[in-house]
Design a protein around this nucleic acid. Structure first.
Lengths: 341, 341
DNA sequence: GTCACCAATGTAAGCGCTTACATCATCATT
DNA sequence: AATGATGATGTAAGCGCTTACATTGGTGAC
């Protein structure tokens, strides 16, 4: 019960218990290898000293951490939340700890975070999307840290991925929109240069146009950042131009919800005057009025399987192949035929 | 360009560059102390080897990490997202890295995460709320890791806090509700046993009742978990009882939005038939129809100031005093006088 | 009684890094 | 030319832990 500031070490515990440091270490790591009476003495000492092992030292000596790192573009909205929560729950169950960092959708920050988590001894990494410089992949290979990409699927990419086909999923939704009779389509997307999910989703819409013999270049596309306010602003812009779209397809639900809010503020009726669609099917989609037509992504399943896959990669040190999950188109109230001309 | 799996160390770099390990270390930590020509040689070696410092070793030798840990109850919804994002941005600006862990609103998991982050060398910790066992506070003191509590304010608590008065804020909102004429009030709250914010908010409603000479025990309170679906379910329960409330006050916006969704599904008009209020003023609140009456919490400001305060604690190793931020009541469409009897 | 064997514990060598201190060259000052 | 600053670099001692290997003493087989 000394009140001085002093952090007890393994050595202190050993002395207090009258054993060697090796024995204390064994008590902590493989208790069955030390006889009960000794073990009791040691744990008594540990408690009375308030000892807690130093992680850094431990890692250095044992060279593994049971830690998985995840770097997501943002924590600010719910896109990644559900999947990540499932990811973490599964990891916990298997005895791993999750460390999360966010990159604010910026490649250089992501790179910095990757290095930081690797340096901290992450045994494996979960990343979002395939858009990153190849030297950082090289770095991961050199360091021998397995990495898994989620939220997208690309069997040809350098890193294995577990996710869905953003392009195909969006094409399916766009096909519905076109079949309803819409011909002037607006798109609100995130930056397609640095965000492969956004890029692929836009490509999916273009694919659908081609199939329907429409000129994909006629799409009115606005690129912005993910966020409700951005969606609102982009909607206002699209809708106030001449020849404005009768359907606005958004790169995700957050943008779509922003668009719907703006529509309401401008007294534009959804879906009578204009249809709006999203992507992700986060909880939000069912909360707004009318409910949002969107693409359902199996976030929890993806998160759980990502955890299993990544642990597998870490443990077996072998490569795994990419997994494609399927999505569903969710038709809800925000999509209807275009108004009569 | 060797392809074998081998992680280069400081020593390898030193040899490759023909200098001592000390010089390499200096290049990394205080480059101005190394002459340019040497520095170039070293960085060349670093790049050609793909060297990346080992964090554990570094921490052990230098005994600080420039890392701040945060443990939040959940990542699953947006309650903590905005504040945490601001927290992280401020930390980054000051050269600190943020590590986030989540506790799923469970005390024992929180404790485990605290130990884990401390063991990983977090220089300081951000925690949410004051409800935790005292031995874990003792642990933090022994380990000499400063911790700051956010999302609530309590000048008398053991740990310093930066936040707002949950009780007073909710009382202010409840007073509005009562002034509008509501007499039968329902409450949807998170678990008040383990969540001090939830407890204080309910207390605030009771305070308002007392002031209005109403019996606080007449409140119809349902405790549930935070989540849209939970809110919906609780709403259905409250509304279908006899003598059902004319106003339902929710512990946060997420619950409130769930309640509104359920109202819509049950064809109950908000606010004509029943009023609904939230707490937090997350983006969601302005997206639903009608917009949600709630308490505005200055999340970003709180996050930013928490970062500054915590860094200050870490650097100066001195205690700081708690800071109280003020909240605003946001009156929006979801609150109206009760229907005529 | 001797020996081999085994379980319990101790000894000590690192793990990769930082940093106090020592060394050495350089250069302005006297 | 001798002196002392000054700045650049090297030397080596840990940081707290794990673990291969060494030691010890007790067991049962012969």
């Amino acid at each position: 019960m000394s009140s001085q500031r002093f952090t007890p070490t393994l050595n202190d515990v050993a002395q207090q218990a009258g054993v060697s440091t090796a024995t204390v270490s064994r008590c902590l790591n493989s208790p069955e290898r030390v006889i009960e009476s000794t073990r009791n003495k040691v744990f008594e000492a540990i408690n009375s000293l308030g000892y807690s092992p130093n992680f850094g030292a431990r890692v250095m000596a044992a060279r593994r951490t049971n830690t998985i790192g995840a770097i997501i573009p943002t924590m600010e909205n719910a896109i990644f939340a559900r999947g990540l929560q499932a990811f973490q729950e599964e990891l916990r169950m298997q005895g791993y700890t999750l460390l999360v960092a966010s990159s604010s959708y910026q490649q250089d920050i992501e790179e910095e975070q990757i290095r930081s988590l690797v340096a901290r001894g992450a045994d494996g990494l979960l990343l979002i999307g395939h858009d990153r410089k190849s030297d950082i992949c090289q770095f991961l290979e050199t360091q021998d840290v397995p990495a898994l990409v989620a939220w997208t699927h690309d069997a040809t990419a350098r890193l294995p991925s577990i996710g869905f086909d953003n392009r195909k999923s969006m094409q399916a939704l766009a096909t519905h929109v076109l079949e309803m009779g819409h011909r002037r389509i607006g798109v609100i997307s995130a930056d397609t240069n640095t965000n492969d999910r956004a890029r692929l989703r836009v490509e999916g819409i273009r694919d659908a146009c081609r199939v329907a013999h429409l000129n994909p270049d006629a799409l009115q596309i606005i690129q912005t950042t993910y966020g409700i306010e951005s969606g609102a602003k982009a909607f206002a812009e699209l809708i106030s131009g001449p020849n404005h779209p009768t359907a606005i397809m958004c790169g995700n639900d957050v943008l779509a919800v922003g668009a719907m809010k703006q529509a309401r503020d401008m007294a534009i009726d959804v879906p009578k005057d204009v249809s709006i669609t999203g992507f992700d099917d986060i909880e939000l989609a069912r909360v707004v009025t009318p409910a949002l037509t969107t693409v359902h992504v199996p976030h929890r399943d993806m998160g759980r399987r990502a955890a299993q896959t990544l642990i597998n990669m870490v443990v077996s040190k072998t490569a795994v192949s990419s997994v494609e999950l399927s999505t569903d188109t969710c038709l809800r109230g925000s999509l209807a035929p275009p108004p009569a001309p």
